[in-house]
């Protein structure tokens, strides 16, 4: 049952990748069963702005803008660090990291990590 649904998720993810190219809106399932979610930073926005995920999943932020950005939550105490044009950073998400985040340079850029069970 578990294997089946994982296989289904894998093929779904492959289809999503084929359609959207390098920046799938859907995460992809890794061999350990966790999902890697992709957030593009483009035109001064996090896309998608909200990611629903499970504890242990990872999020990869990729900066496609020409200016530097970060994904940072001062309150929850985490940050990708500075992402220059073309840089990506992946973080494994813990329960403490849930909630709102911003770019530390651009406070109008807002994102959200929502933990679902």
């Amino acid at each position: 049952m578990h294997t089946l649904s994982r296989r289904a998720a894998l093929s779904y993810s492959a289809a999503a990748l084929a359609v959207t190219g390098a920046a799938p809106l859907f995460g992809h399932v890794k061999p350990d069963g966790t999902t890697e979610h992709h957030v593009s930073i483009k035109d001064m926005k996090f896309d998608p702005p909200t990611v629903e995920l499970k504890v242990g999943d990872s999020v990869s932020w990729k900066n496609l803008d020409l200016v530097n950005h970060t994904a940072t939550s001062a309150k929850a105490g985490w940050s990708t660090g500075v992402l220059k044009k073309g840089d990506a950073e992946s973080l494994v998400i813990t329960a403490e990291m849930a909630g709102a985040y911003v770019c530390k340079y651009h406070p109008q850029m807002k994102g959200m990590l929502v933990i679902v069970s």
Binding site: D43, M44, V67, M109
Partner: peptide, 16 residues
């Protein structure tokens, strides 16, 4: 066009 997006964010930031 990229510059315009950046300047708009700066404008909102300045307003704040």
């Amino acid at each position: 066009e990229a510059g315009l997006g950046i300047f708009k964010e700066h404008e909102a930031h300045a307003e704040m």
